[in-house]
Amino acid sequence: MLEARLEQANLLKKVVDAIKDLVQDCNFDCNDSGIALQAMDNSHVALVSMMLKSESFSPFRCDRNIALGINLGSLTKVLRCAQNEDILTLKAEDAPDVVNLVFESAETDRISEYDIKLMDIDQEHLGIPETEYAATITMPSAEFQRICRDLSALSESVSIECSKEGVKFNCQGDIGSGSIHLRSHTNVDKPELNVEIDLTEPVSLTFSLKYLVNFCKASGLSNQVKLCLSNEVPLLVEYALSNNSYLRFYLAPKIGD
């Protein structure tokens, strides 16, 4: 059986909120290392990969592998019934028909309990190769969100160019063009504002802004976001969570002329 207790419901609320517009029905794969999810959007252009390590829960118990097929719309409805600070416990039997969610208020003695019916989801699982990326940019997640939102007003696509000069986000649209240039930046007092660019070779890639704007819904999960790029491979956008847990998005590039 599965029993996983989260100190704050807020974490799961934010994760589900960040991915629910990209993917609808997903398997939450539970085993003794934690709860993982991998799902592609309908167009097979973007992929969500979530890992909530067992250390992110206290306690965490999962005796055998259980796949919980959950509709994220349904999960959102139930998670709305939890307060952000509630303690959340997920429970399921070994061959479950439902997943059980218990929300406990630390301040009052209120306990609420919900069951969500599970679905059989035959999901395509992709093997993501280990990649040594040519450029890794770590930057404030709010800054990345602002860039994507600002440029999406002008264009459908953004080119991300990374060189030893820094990183440049460029777009061209019907009304004109825009570009934002960032350099490495260290703020001793506010390290969450740091921009770090780790480059082994220059990179230039084009991506759909619609998806990037969608990924940025995860900005509330982490002060910083990591963008990993290599020419002609999917972009990795990573929001690191506590205890080595993470929410990652992969986005296939736009290629050729």
């Binding site: 252009v45 759909s208 999917p234 992969y250 736009k254 290629i255």
Partner: peptide, 14 residues
Amino acid sequence: APKQATLGKFFGNL
């Protein structure tokens, strides 16, 4: 204009 690729081109099926 460049064309949107899909992930299957880069990631293998498991």
